[in-house]
C-alpha cells in the first residue's frame, strides 16, 4: 500500500488547518471588544433565569448595568433576592439595597360558585384577546378572566390555574416576584406584595371598583367598600378608594382583625395557623430565610 497518500493528506489538511487558525486568530485580535471582566463575575453570581424581572433584557444586561452603575440602589434582582445582591455588591465593592422579599398575590376570588357566568366566551383562549373583546364573562367587569395568560409567562412554574375555581394560584416557594405575571394580566389583578414572616399575608382579594350593590350582584366575595375593615384596623393600614379597600403591606401588622369583620370574606389571610388564638406577631424585622 502506498503510504505517501496518507502523508500527503495529513500535510495538506494540516496546512489548511494552520492557515485557518492564523486567519481566525488575526480576525479575533482585530475585532476584539474589551469587556469588563467583572461583568462575567457578576453574571455568574446571578441566578441565570433570564426572566427580565429586574427590568433588563436578561442576566447579562443586568450584570453590565450593575458594573456600570454608581450604586446598586435602583438595581435589584428579584429572583436572587438579598443574598444574591449581597454577593454582587461584594464582588463590585458597592453596597446593595436590601429589599423585603416579595411574592405575587392574586387579587380575585371569583370562582364560578361565587361569580356566576353571564356568557360563554368562544374566542381565542387568551386573557389579552378576551379583554379586548368585552368586559368579561361574568357580571364583574374587573375580575379574573381565567384564561391563564399569567401561567404562560411564568419562567419558574410558580403559577397555575386551578381547574375548579378557574383562578390562578401562586406557589409561594417557587415565586421569585419577577413580575412577569403582573405585566401579563390585562386586568391588573396580580400584585407583588411583601412575602411576610412565615409567608403570612393579609390582603384584599378583590379589585372591583363598582358600588356595593352592583358589585355584590356580580360576585359573592367582592369588596363592597363598606369600610368596616378600615374601622377595625388599629394600624391605619387600610385605605378605601373607589369603593375598594386596600391594605398597605408596609403598615399591616398581620393582626387579622380586618379578616374577621369583612362581611363578604373579601379579605384573605394566608398561611396562618387555623383557629388558633390571635397571637401578636412581630413586624418583619429580619428577612425570612426559609424562602
Amino acid at each position: 500500500m502506498d503510504y505517501s497518500i496518507i502523508l500527503y493528506t495529513v500535510i495538506a489538511l494540516g496546512s489548511v488547518a494552520l492557515l485557518l487558525a492564523i486567519i481566525l486568530y488575526g480576525v479575533a485580535q482585530k475585532f476584539k471588544v474589551y469587556e469588563d471582566p467583572r461583568i462575567d463575575i457578576v453574571e455568574k453570581i446571578l441566578p441565570g433565569a433570564n426572566c427580565g424581572g429586574c427590568g433588563f433584557a436578561g442576566c447579562r444586561a443586568f450584570a453590565e448595568a450593575a458594573v456600570k452603575a454608581e450604586d446598586l440602589a435602583t438595581i435589584f434582582c428579584p429572583v436572587g433576592g438579598n443574598d444574591c445582591m449581597k454577593n454582587v455588591a461584594e464582588a463590585l465593592g458597592k453596597t446593595a439595597a436590601e429589599k423585603e422579599p416579595m411574592v405575587a398575590v392574586i387579587r380575585c376570588s371569583g370562582s364560578p360558585a361565587h361569580r356566576p357566568r353571564t356568557s360563554i366566551y368562544d374566542g381565542a383562549q387568551s386573557c389579552a384577546v378576551m379583554a379586548s373583546v368585552y368586559a368579561g364573562d361574568t357580571g364583574c367587569s374587573f375580575g379574573c378572566l381565567g384564561r391563564g395568560d399569567c401561567t404562560l409567562v411564568c419562567d419558574f412554574d410558580a403559577i397555575h390555574m386551578n381547574p375548579e375555581t378557574l383562578l390562578p394560584e401562586v406557589i409561594d416557594d417557587k415565586c421569585t416576584a419577577c413580575g412577569a405575571c403582573v405585566k401579563a394580566c390585562p386586568k391588573f389583578i396580580i400584585e407583588l406584595r411583601k412575602k411576610g414572616p412565615k409567608n403570612r399575608r393579609i390582603f384584599v382579594s378583590c379589585i372591583n371598583k363598582d358600588k356595593g350593590g352592583v358589585a355584590r350582584k356580580a360576585c359573592k366575595v367582592v369588596c363592597i367598600g363598606c369600610g368596616v375593615c378600615k374601622k377595625a384596623c388599629t394600624f391605619d393600614a387600610i385605605t378605601i378608594e373607589n369603593n375598594l379597600a386596600y391594605i398597605d403591606f408596609n403598615k399591616c401588622k398581620l393582626c387579622r382583625k380586618c379578616v374577621e369583620v369583612c362581611p363578604t370574606n373579601a379579605i384573605h389571610e394566608l398561611n396562618f395557623p387555623p383557629k388558633k388564638k390571635v397571637e401578636e406577631i412581630a413586624p418583619a424585622k429580619e428577612p425570612v430565610s426559609n424562602a
Binding site: 356568557s119 381565542a124 373583546v133
Partner: peptide
Amino acid sequence: MSNMRISPA
C-alpha cells in the same frame, strides 16, 4: 343572556 356566546369577529 347567560347562554350567549361571545367571541371576537
